Each structure stands twice: as C-alpha cells, then as structure tokens.
Amino acid sequence: MLRGVHVQDCVDDTLRMRCAAALLVLPQGAVFSHETAARLWGGVVPSRSRVQVTVPYARPIRRPELEARRARRMPPALRLRGLPVTGPERTFLDLATRLDLVDLVVLGDSLVRARRTTPELLVEQARQHRGPRAALARRAAALVRSGVDSPMETRLRLLVVLAGLPEPVVNHVLRDENGGWTYRFDLSWPQVKLALEYDGRQHSEDSRQWVRDVRRREDLDGRGWRLLVALSVDVFGTPGATVDRVAVALRQRGLVVRTSDGWRGHFPSRG
C-alpha cells in the first residue's frame, strides 16, 4: 500500500484502505484533507494519485505516496469510519485554493447530495472564511444547490447561469391532474414550460430507451412543454452554441433575455 506497509492481496485497494495504511506512518495529529477528504465524504473532485494529508508543522513527512502539508495551526478533525478527516465545510473551503469555480460548485453539489452538508451551511461558513481565495469560496457556495443528480448537471446549470440567463429550477416535478408524479426535469423554467436535461447515455445502442424517449417527448409536447437535451460535447466542446440554443428557446417561450460572456473563462470552447 505504501513503502514498508503491506496488506494481503485479497483486500481491495480502496482510498479508505490507503488512508488506513497511511495512518501507520503518519505523525500523531495528522488529518486527511483536501481532495482525499472530499472523496471520503462522498464529494466529486478531480482525480489525484496521491493521498492528501495535513500534518503538524513540527512533524514533517516526506513520502512519495503522500501529498503532505505542514500547518502551524491544525484544522479541526472529525472521525469518519475511524479516519481523522477535515469536515465537509472545511474541506470545501480548503479546496477553494486548488479548484476553479465550476469544480468547486461540483464539489458543493455532490457533498449536499451525499447529505454531508447543506447549501445554507456552506454559505454561512464561506461568509465567515478569511483564508486564501475566500471570495471564490463565497461565490461558489452561493451557487450550490440541493437535489443535483450529477456533476454534468451542475456544469450545465453553471454554463446557463454564468451566461447571464435566468437560473433554472433543479429537479422540478411535473404532476398529473390528480397530483401524481409523472416527470422530473434536471433543469427547467416551469413558468414557460421549458426543460433542459443532460443526457450521457448512448441511445443509438439502446433501441428500447430510444422508443421510451420518443413517447416521452410526445407526451410532453401534448402538455405544452419543450425539452432541450444537452450532450457532453455541448458542455465541453461547443458551450457557446449551447448558450445560444437555450437563449433562443427562452425567447421563443416569451422571456426577454440577454446573454453575457461570463461563461467563457470557465467553459473554454474546443469546437
């Protein structure tokens, strides 16, 4: 697992197991932090090959498998399945120094989905934060929402919002005449019956799913709803065209909207 630390080969090589192995060589008081802490809490962050840990300043550690930071004032630690870990809110604030705005909101949304924190608590903690890039932490916390199902839904929502368009409702539920649940939209503007969804599936390989989607579209058309579908390329490849599609659809639905270039620094076009 680490140099000088071994485990039977029948044991799964998981992040938690690597952290348990690291505890055998770390100084007393060490705390798992940053991306490692985020992943332990169920958050979504960019992948890192090494385990991130914060250690007391007087107890330096040099191991190639670990990314250790020395701190004169150690962050408070919580116990998570026996591991000392920075809390969800502290982890969010720490990663403001390493992540950009979009990835930080992805982390916040995922922590909320994992029921480790709430948008309100992140906003409160970020407001009190005086550390590096505190302004970024406050801006990201204000954009975290409950009910987001995936990182790509977060990215799609932020693309729309940073372009200056009205913020869509997350997970709006469409009900039938008896109040029963019929559809749930990733993102929508219920007041004008426009929905926007991210689709990461390969429908060309699933004819039954394709048929279900065709029937769903017909049903929504009958209810007066319009459904826009975004793919991965629409977010990562041609974000400008995606902004234009959404803006045109909103205008066709009667909203007066203007777009800005605020998305460009966060969604570089590749197509």
Rank of each mutant, 00 (worst) to 15 (best):
G254P: 03
V192S: 01
V257T: 01
T259H: 05
P56Q: 12
V123P: 12
R18A: 13
Y183A: 15
Q252W: 07
L93D: 10
V257P: 02
Q209S: 14
L158D: 03
W189G: 05
A241C: 09
R253T: 11
T86N: 12
T242N: 00
V161C: 00
L174D: 09
P268E: 11
A135W: 05
V235Q: 06
P119T: 01
P151N: 08
R264F: 02
G179V: 12
P56F: 05
V53H: 01
L122G: 02
L196H: 13
D234Y: 06
V105M: 11
Y57E: 13
V85Q: 11
A22M: 10
D100C: 02
D149T: 02
R69G: 05
D213T: 09
R258E: 15
S204D: 12
Y183K: 09
L40Q: 04
A135C: 08
S207F: 00
R116E: 12
D219Q: 12
V173W: 00
V233N: 08
H129R: 07
H203T: 07
L136R: 08
D176Y: 07
E205F: 13
G224L: 04
T182D: 15
C10A: 10
D176N: 14
R216L: 00
F236V: 14
F185A: 13
G240C: 14
P64I: 12
R50D: 08
P132W: 12
W181N: 14
P190Y: 00
G265H: 11
A135I: 12
S47E: 11
E167S: 08
P168Y: 14
L93F: 09
V105F: 08
R79M: 11
R90T: 15
V7C: 01
S47W: 14
R127Y: 05
Y57G: 10
E65D: 15
T118A: 12
L194N: 07
S150V: 03
A114G: 07
L159P: 02
V256A: 03
P46C: 05
T36F: 05
Y183T: 11
P60H: 04
D219T: 03
